[in-house]
Design a protein around this nucleic acid. Structure first.
Length: 490
RNA sequence: CGGGGCGUAGCGCAGUCCGGCAGCGCGCCUGCUUUGGGGGCAGGAUGUCGCAGGUUCAAAUCCUGCCGCCCCGACCA
């Protein structure tokens, strides 16, 4: 009897479970520089699938990809007051290059609003040059004090969209539209039931007029910001003199937006769906959707492998991502555990008895085994993967609902944020928000909002409710006209 | 950046108190045998004991300094 190998149980130490799972599933490994990680092939394949889906959605909404440089003159970052205050503490700066000290230090981009603003000020002359609808897939660097793989790393991969518009209305519409794109991605591809809405003043992006966000609940009840879309107003336009001559002959500042989603979403997928056996990957993003495990003895190896090969070809023809695990040095039992750890949604077991009978055993990562005719699998498995996705989403949403409490007194609030989300009225005062954080470790995560025109809807009635009340902590009249989601956050 | 803990084979650890042959489990390699839920037997390889200096006949072990990692806290658009 071999010792059981696998991640630390979630109930014992959720944080350790997360770290173990990433290592054991070979998603990533620690790199030599503090806070940096190597994304290993299996993890990168997951990221590539995320990129592929999102990139298609960006293009479908009229955006084009471009690439702006990694190095940004320090002076650029200082042009927008809130921006510099927000990002200075975590900047990495190049002071020497080519063996000499640089005249002006170069910041390694923490985000690209400034350099894109600078370029736009050169490119934009007329209303005919608008809108600018750009996106870039790149890396950014933020020197965080405390890091965690995927969730907060010194360097991370993401995409950052940047748009410039002639009118405020158009820019605000873009902000909502892209939040809608992220919500669709989260719901329909990552199976993440996230709460769309707006950040409070205290939590918004440094330099934004307002920030919209998607907040998810992890299996330990903590919140994870999964994507953001910012309305930047004319803040960066003024800082970088981005103006255009409008149809009415007036010279005007443009209105800009930015929006981003990082590989942090991988952390969200891990902590939303994973269990004590390891990863559970949503089928639409999983690098491998179906793994075929051939089972054979000396005399049956050839027959079984041939049947496995034929099945793999059939499933590939249906567009499924399939892998046949014919590694000779491992037993079937080992392979079962191995692919469960790696979160593959469906497994097909194919042994001599099955080949003989023209059947196979299929097993869902989150369900029971069943026997099905081999000939049916090419129709059956795509349906099962759809159902798998739906079940992942449904159970995550149920989990979130079960751990979300509507609270009206501070004691209940404290209990709620120890376990999950608290829906509470708040006065909107930043000092009061800070006090709540000091007293409970919870922060205002999101003011739930809907933008029906862009498909941004809540998936829970409790989050749609509007109303007036008094602040959960200080008792002053509540702001926002609705309850705010508070939680401990990553 | 403050408090605590830990650095010994790829991973997890024992050995450190009380100086005296570098060990265990897993993994890895070879062969045989196995294969329907983490197989078995036999043989084998792998060490800058975090780094530097000191004490000593002798240092993983004692002393000094440094570095790194983890946890808690502060910080974290």
């Amino acid at each position: 009897m071999a010792k059981v190998k696998g991640p630390t149980p979630q109930s014992q130490d959720f944080s350790q479970w997360y770290l173990d799972t990433i290592q054991l599933a070979e998603l990533a490994d620690y790199a030599p520089v503090r806070g940096t990680i190597v994304v290993r092939p299996y993890g990168y394949a997951l990221w590539e699938n995320i990129q592929r889906v999102l990139d298609g959605m960006f293009k479908a909404t009229g955006h084009q990809n471009a690439y702006f440089p990694l190095f940004i003159p320090m002076s650029f970052l200082q042009k927008e007051a809130e921006h510099v205050e927000g990002f200075s503490p975590e900047l990495a700066v190049v002071t020497h290059a080519g063996g000499e000290e640089l005249e002006e230090p170069l910041a390694i981009r923490p985000t690209s609003e400034t350099i894109i603003g600078y370029m736009w000020s050169k490119w934009i002359r007329s209303w005919r040059d608008l809108p600018q609808l750009l996106n870039q897939w790149n890396n950014v660097v933020r020197w965080e004090k405390r890091t965690r793989p995927f969730l907060r790393t010194s360097e991370f991969l993401w995409q950052e969209g940047h748009t410039a518009h002639a009118t405020k209305e158009e820019a605000e519409e873009e902000t909502a539209r892209m939040l809608g794109v992220y919500l669709q991605f989260a719901r329909d591809y990552a199976a993440l039931p996230v709460i769309p809405g707006q950040k409070t003043e205290r939590e918004k992006f440094a330099g934004a007029v307002y920030t919209t966000t998607l907040e998810g609940m992890m299996k330990d009840g903590r919140a994870l910001q999964s994507a953001t879309s910012h309305f930047l107003g004319q803040n960066f336009a003024r800082a970088f003199e981005i103006t255009f001559q409008d149809k009415d002959l007036e010279e005007k500042y443009v209105w800009t937006t930015s929006w981003g989603l990082s590989w942090r979403i991988i952390g969200g997928i891990i902590m939303t769906h994973g269990d004590d056996k390891g990863l559970v990957l949503p089928p639409k993003l999983a690098p491998i959707q179906v793994v075929i495990v051939p089972i054979y003895k000396a005399g049956s190896k050839e027959r079984v492998l041939q049947a496995a090969g034929a099945l793999e070809a059939e499933l590939r023809e249906k567009g499924l991502r399939v892998f046949t695990d014919d590694r000779d040095q491992y037993t079937p039992g080992f392979k079962f555990h191995d692919w469960e750890l790696r979160g593959v949604p469906y497994r097909v077991e194919l042994g001599p008895r099955d080949v003989e009978a023209g059947t196979a055993v299929i097993k869902s990562r989150i369900g029971e085994k069943e026997t099905a005719p081999l000939a049916d699998l090419k129709e059956l498995l795509p349906k099962r993967l759809e159902a798998f996705h739906d079940e992942l989403f449904a159970r995550a949403r149920e989990f979130r609902k079960a751990r979300t409490r509507v609270v009206d007194d501070y004691q209940a609030f404290k209990e709620a944020v120890a376990e999950g989300f608290a829906l509470a009225y708040h006065c909107g005062d930043a000092a009061c928000e800070r006090a709540i954080q000091e007293e409970t470790k919870a922060t205002a995560r999101v003011i739930p909002l809907e933008f029906p025109a862009h498909g941004v809807l809540q998936d829970d009635e409790a989050l749609k409710a509007t109303g007036e009340g008094t602040c959960i902590r200080c008792g002053r009249p509540a702001a926002y006209g609705r309850r705010v989601v508070f939680a401990r956050a990553y």
